[in-house]
């Protein structure tokens, strides 16, 4: 295996938010610096683990995640419990939302808000219907 790694541009999608910065690719694994991780995901690598928005999760995998090559992206995603899809050839990865977070949010029964455009490009938010009874109806042309 070629272990001489060079940093190349790689795109990380955090729930669609793209950041393209340098990463190191070794076989099918992606390694990034703490700085790149912070910019791309808002998670900070700290001695005690990974922290974001006042929440810290211990790195119980130690150097298996924070390696000499950098932070192993898949290992990090697993630690914070988020799904990760990777395309090494296209140099892009997508971080999704964990089932636990989605389930917890839906279990609160507070309808998650969103803003999307209509055919004319006019944005509509679900929250603008507060105070009325709302039928949310998903459909498609297919």
């Amino acid at each position: 295996m070629n272990t001489t790694a060079t940093a190349i541009p790689f795109t990380i999608l955090d729930q669609w938010r793209p950041t393209t910065l340098n990463a190191t690719l070794l076989a099918d694994r992606v390694f990034v610096s703490a700085e790149v991780l912070s910019v791309a995901t808002k998670w900070e690598s700290k001695p005690e683990g990974f922290c974001c928005g006042g929440i810290c999760l211990p790195n119980n995998k130690g150097e298996a995640v924070v390696t000499r090559q950098g932070i192993d992206l898949a290992g990090f995603a697993e630690l914070i419990g988020r799904p990760l899809a990777v395309d090494i050839d296209e140099r892009v990865a997508a971080l999704g939302v964990s089932a636990q977070d989605r389930g917890a949010a839906l279990g609160l029964l507070e309808a998650p808000d969103f803003t999307l455009p209509d055919l004319a490009g006019e944005p509509h938010s679900m929250s603008q219907f507060r105070g009325r009874k709302l039928l949310l109806a998903a459909f498609s042309s297919w």
Partner: peptide
């Protein structure tokens, strides 16, 4: 981009939900 499908765990169409005046799923 199926943002709403992800937010509401929708897996097919049509899918409907009722949301009350306080923004709660009923």
């Amino acid at each position: 981009r199926h943002v709403v499908a992800d937010l509401y765990n929708m897996v097919n169409v049509p899918t409907i939900l009722w949301i009350d005046e306080q923004g709660r799923i009923v």
